[in-house]
Design a protein around this nucleic acid. Structure first.
Lengths: 93, 93
DNA sequence: ATATCAAGTTTATAACATAAACTAATTTAT
DNA sequence: ATAAATTAGTTTATGTTATAAACTTGATAT
């Protein structure tokens, strides 16, 4: 009847992050923070979760002297997102 | 960029309940429990929340000697569901 | 030198989802 | 008749989550 909704993706902020990353080669912390209109703390936590699940890759470097956190979606993340959207369809017709 | 996702509907079980009720005149507790494959406790709690929000109407009566809880979606619930689906689209393209 | 800002991280708190335990009445078996 | 099991739920407890608040670290401006 209804398919399971991956709890890692069934979260407004994490879904937004994944949605953004899906359409980009990569995105940095500040960009994601602005686009998702989230607080830095919340974003940090949710990026960790996505990263631990292997859905995204997080790379920490420096832009000049400022820290720069760059994220990109993984193959696994893309598959998970697609599965999620597919499962959603069982709910929304 | 991304639209807010009504937290009342952004829940697997509540979304399932609403999805079912949207296509039916009404449905009773047992039917919803089976179709959503949920426990009675969880279903009871989530029906209360939807009811308190005015998204559904819950009517308690008896079928013979057994209690019968009948649910139906309200206008407000239909609108909320439609809004939710619409907002979702900002995430899943 | 100190105050402020940028880019985060860590910790604390409040809300949520879920399961487990319980209630009340009914039917079935002994 | 009484005990056991079933039905149809509700209430309470517990573990997760999301989020905000507080903190860190280094850089820049005053």
């Amino acid at each position: 009847m209804f398919k399971e909704l991956d709890p890692l993706l069934h979260s407004q902020l994490r879904l937004g992050i994944m949605s953004l990353l899906l359409g980009l080669d990569s995105a940095d912390f500040t960009f994601l923070k602005e686009k998702t209109d989230s607080t830095a703390g919340n974003l940090s936590v949710q990026l960790d979760k996505l990263s631990e699940a292997g859905y995204i890759l997080v790379e920490k470097s420096f832009k000049g002297k400022k820290p720069l956190t760059t994220c990109r979606i993984t193959k696994k993340g893309i598959r998970a997102f697609e599965d999620y959207v597919n499962s959603l369809k069982s709910y929304i017709k």
